[in-house]
Design a protein around this nucleic acid. Sequence first.
DNA 1: CGAACAGTTGAGGCGCGTCAAACTTGGTGG
DNA 2: CCACCAAGTTTGACGCGCCTCAACTGTTCG
Lengths: 242, 242
Amino acid sequence: MSESCLIAKLGRYVDLAEADRRVLARLEESEREYRKDQIVRRTGQPVEDLFVVKSGWVTSFSILEDGRRQLLRLFYPGDIVDLAEATMSHAQHDIKCITPAVLCPFPKAGLEPIFRRSPRLTALLFSMTVNEAGSLLDRIRAIGRFSAYERLCYLLLEVRARLSMTVSTVDEGFRLPLTQSDIADLLGLTNVYVSRTMTRIERDRLIRRQGNLVTILEPDRMREICEFRHIHEIDTSWFPQD
Amino acid sequence: MSESCLIAKLGRYVDLAEADRRVLARLEESEREYRKDQIVRRTGQPVEDLFVVKSGWVTSFSILEDGRRQLLRLFYPGDIVDLAEATMSHAQHDIKCITPAVLCPFPKAGLEPIFRRSPRLTALLFSMTVNEAGSLLDRIRAIGRFSAYERLCYLLLEVRARLSMTVSTVDEGFRLPLTQSDIADLLGLTNVYVSRTMTRIERDRLIRRQGNLVTILEPDRMREICEFRHIHEIDTSWFPQD
DNA sequence: CGAACAGTTGAGGCGCGTCAAACTTGGTGG
DNA sequence: CCACCAAGTTTGACGCGCCTCAACTGTTCG
């Protein structure tokens, strides 16, 4: 059996029993390859499957009638796409792959054994969902009250923090596969203004860019600028012991 | 025993077994009164208790160093404040009462029996959390891509939809206990511009105002303006049967 | 009656959007 | 290995939506 992304991710928070691992591994039994920009699911379609991201970046977004677009979330390897839709019979948002990706589809009902058999795993899944909601709150704060400059600092730190969970070399730079239009639609800006502002951030020597490779030169100063605190801890003290 | 808000809310989605009701009722055993504007918990304080809202409106918000403020969520009777912090050992946001309120504090560990004993209730709690994240996504879309006019239409419809779950008379108007500064901080605007825009919305005969009583005259036109679709259904088909 | 707070209105300014054109980059095929 | 094209990025000129500051009005409650 190939390495399970979910087990890798959840295992960072709690020790997983062998039974837990088996349940999780079942969610990644089948896998499917997607091209860059390929649509995974469109708004209005029935939500039958959820997906574990095995590799690549995935996003969910919403498009208004006049074409305005808002990117809602970024999903990275180990994330489940889209737990937020699991309770809906029909999708509220579009989902597409930002990079070539491998996703593991599993039927919604695949969650049921987790809920039924492992209170501990359930608490963990619950906590991670709640944590993801926490990062949505951060983005609401950013979009609602930050200048473009602050928003971009925030986004770069957020991506870096997320990547540093699995990659140890973010200090030497990381690939940002998002176009400036994507970034704009994540942060409520326009591609033009993202370009201008990124250039300013680089001129201020907070970052360096080479193609889509971004190096954050002054993480501490950047953190002050957008009052960024990366807190994705999970308090497991109250978890059931099974 | 007095009426439980939680049971009332959750009972709208699934039939609750007697055991479920007992577990939920325990979360509302003690209650505490709060004044308007009273702080329930400040950023950085340890998160020991969660709260069931019994009456009143509660909000969580974040304040930047220079005073900028962003309201993050509104909690109504039957909601749990703040599940999103349950997994944190220390609070990330301030919580305060917008109106006089009665909250029922219970220790975080009070969730544990739910996870351990009732997979069905757990799935429901999970779904509601996910649904709340869904409304955060709606707000991200609103703040990120809507004009002030659209944002206000969206907020009024959102509040109305939420109130209509417990009150049948929203068509004849409802009280909006938020100040215009609160509304501004919810939507990423300023109180001045909220005032101007509310006046425009009223002049366009979409709403009528008398003090803080708001009547939505043309809900359908308003829904078109901000592409509002109130979907807070919960697909219970995959829930464990206990 | 007056203080404190919420809402309204006006004047002026700025941050970001829009439109458009040039430039850069990476992939493709001859 | 270069020519070419499409996609993405940068830059400039200009405009507008929302912000800022400030004065005034209305309302509530001691």
